[in-house]
Amino acid sequence: MNKIGKLVNIIIGLSIILILWQVVVLTGRYEASLLPSPLMVLNALKEVISNGSLFTNIQVSLLRFFVGYSSAVILAVVFGLILGWFEKVWAIIDPIVQVLRPISPIAWFPFIVLWLGIGDIPAIAIIFIASFFPVLLSTVSAVKKVDKTYLKVAKNFGMKQYSVLTKIIFPASFPSIVTGLHIALGSAWVFLVAGEMVGVQSGLGFMIIDARNSLRSDLLLAAIINIGVIGLLLDKLVNIFEKWVGKTWGIAQEPERS
């Protein structure tokens, strides 16, 4: 019942958008090159699917995304664990991070290109920067929040510092770290497109630029829709992971709203 209800809601929502869109198109106030009709976008979608370019571009984007995101996550979690643990070191690093964090990854773009050249690397670097800080900060704060009783227990049993980090601190902070991973995933996906708009000849971001250059607003919208849907799917994937972690870690799940 619940699942069917959700599906119905999705269908209603999409239908409203489609109808409104079609109505605006039918008024004829906008040229087709400014606002393509749903049918035109569907055809554009068919075109990029049948010539294979869509899937190639999605593949390339996902690969870049995966490399940038996972390297950022690994580094940020390792640094976060260490920095959260050694409070005195964090006290020095924290102000630097606070200054770097609000800078949009895009602002680094000129430097990235100068230092790393063009191609896959700049796009990956943008995603790396976009994911790194949220994960770092959530890891540090998760480590600081670890229940002091666990640390006392570890000390009591005579656990060595390294074991405390791997057997107590990391698993104890893992659920909060995963929340950070979730947030970072969203913001990194937003920046993927920006990262692919300059200096590469493939990917979803390139599809946007390419459509603009050839004045194909139908292709443009088709690419936009793909970016949205894939972002949503990635989010759902982390969501499942987050729920699994919560369950395995024995954290009471909030009852779902019905």
């Binding site: 229940d147 009783t149 006392k152 227990v153 698993p171 104890a172 395995t248 870690w249 024995g250």
Partner: peptide, 9 residues
């Protein structure tokens, strides 16, 4: 300890 200090995971 009073709050047991068990590791929930």
């Amino acid at each position: 300890f009073q709050n047991y200090g068990l590791l929930p995971w």
